[in-house]
Design a protein around this nucleic acid. Sequence first.
DNA 1: AACTAACATGATAACGTTTCAAGTGCAGAG
DNA 2: CTCTGCACTTGAAACGTTATCATGTTAGTT
Lengths: 355, 355
Amino acid sequence: MNQDDESNGKRQATIVEVAERAGVAIGTVSRYLNGQPIRTRNRDLIEAAIRELGYRRNALAAAMKSELTNMVGFLVPRLSEFHAPVLEHLSLLLRKQGRALLTYCHNDDTASVIDLLDFFDSHRVDCLIMDGRVDAVDRIRDLVRSGTPVIFYDNDVPGPNVDRVFVENRAASYRAVSHLLDIGHTRIAVLTGDTNNWTGRERYEGYRQAMIGRGIEIDPDYVLDMHWSEDEAFSGMLRLLTLPRPPTALFCCNYNMTVGAIRMIKEQGLKIPADISLVSFDDVPLFRLHEAGITAVAQPIAKIAETIANLVSLRLSHRGAALNSHMTTLDCDIILRGSTRRLITPEDVARHGHR
Amino acid sequence: MNQDDESNGKRQATIVEVAERAGVAIGTVSRYLNGQPIRTRNRDLIEAAIRELGYRRNALAAAMKSELTNMVGFLVPRLSEFHAPVLEHLSLLLRKQGRALLTYCHNDDTASVIDLLDFFDSHRVDCLIMDGRVDAVDRIRDLVRSGTPVIFYDNDVPGPNVDRVFVENRAASYRAVSHLLDIGHTRIAVLTGDTNNWTGRERYEGYRQAMIGRGIEIDPDYVLDMHWSEDEAFSGMLRLLTLPRPPTALFCCNYNMTVGAIRMIKEQGLKIPADISLVSFDDVPLFRLHEAGITAVAQPIAKIAETIANLVSLRLSHRGAALNSHMTTLDCDIILRGSTRRLITPEDVARHGHR
DNA sequence: AACTAACATGATAACGTTTCAAGTGCAGAG
DNA sequence: CTCTGCACTTGAAACGTTATCATGTTAGTT
């Protein structure tokens, strides 16, 4: 037999060759491949032909006609400890739908974002999943206009064909800070994320409302916009600790800033929670390993991925239809560990009066 | 003007429409799009037409002819703290090459792997990047035979069109264990990864050679194959700690097992390094945050990604050509932190004899 | 046994590019 | 002013599918 074709193996068999070998029409093979009903005899013939030829359908050609690529764009700033598990879950869930993720990080660079959106667009992804912390809103609107559904995680950019998945940023922050208040802290500092950004504002707002709700005035020195960044938080934390009246507790609006803060606290020879209490937004596995255990707001990662996957499926099974935009808000848990220390109780305050 | 086309916006303009509007041939537009030389006048006309029509090239159609999709498959077991940063770096590097990553996790399920390889195959990825810890070697060979280059991270599956990138698993393990020996430990346990697997074997081998090299007999009770798993390591660690002569030091062959071990050590009320010394393979950011700081073997993640990206580029600029398979071995650093305690020095041993 | 539905099949035209052989125009040389 | 080359342009033929629709085939009624 001609072993050349076998060993060199450049060319993939096509549907035409399968049809010829099976002695049926191309259309019949196509129908078989797409799970449409087929005469039993033909099915057997086709299956044999496919096996013998090692045929593998060319999804590109298929996509070109069907206008469906089964690829979903996934765009995040970085593959952080938060985004990575979301991606992992999504990858598993979308596999069941026969779809795959085209993944990109944009590193907070607007020019990149635009490039990448172009890439997704020309590759005709069926749908786009984005982290909300992104600037290139105009280009996104273009995409949406061209018919590609967009699913935003944590952003309030509205529009037709745009679905949004949130966590209750504000409420969770509120509860986290309230916990610090409950155990007697009043000098509570906050490291916020970029407050030009929706998520950043919401998390700060939770802090603010919790403080105001207890009638505590917010000391401007205690509020630092660290732009979600570990390094900024690292140096920002020094400012906080060297204040004439340093805070007794700290709320960090994401995981990276928590890491920065802890590093500086360690460097200054201070202890958590003895010297300062800490609550973090974002729970990452290794918070368990910290000597004290870091109390943190856990985002429901599996739930987020599931919600997004369902939206993908929904959008794509009703494509073209003018669906309402969905907006889902998911609850967070606060995982109590050892990083917060009870100060004087409210009763103590009542008894002894203010210092 | 007919605003219907604008607002409804389903249809994307095609190269044909661009050509018509610019008053040139389709081929000319195509040449322009692919950066081939073009008469200045035509360039202007085409650029204008593209702008006015909001044309975006259909990469699928292009790929169908050119046989290049600019998509690279990326397949890993999970998006671990090790793989996520590799993916992030790769994503950034490949972007510069105009390529994107189709990302999947297979969760160590062989059936999944085969499915996913099929998916990649039918989507005609230009190239495939895989973590070596994978079983479906036959299917991979199929892929390779069909002309798709494969780049393996940490596996020794050889073959034409297969490149391999390693870290010096054995040597790094050797050095890590030697460090424990240097500071006086002899009762050193090891939690190995799956030893059916190349990486697992190599890392164990480094341990073995270091021990043997000092003339220390390896106690079988001290060697536990925990299959890279945090949970197995968690329970395995209990066995180790309740041994009549428990080890004074521990070498964990990956990050997950280290986490499992630390959890159990903590649960048993023991301290690192006072009660047990620890060195881990894989350095993850949060090892810095541990109270003692975990000493670890740091894989050169940026270098790994860079090497892989270069291989992708190399393979695809010489496609079809029978290139030699490349094999690159990268060095690891050992990051010394506080998780190891100096026991008696070798001199002490000499002075006092064995106990 | 003839007569419909209901359903599967076959041939062919898309889909939006790239590629290639053949054609056109333009510059400089004679 | 024509000729030779060169450089760009052109139009048509792929690429491997799916979709369409007229044609066959089957099973279900009478």
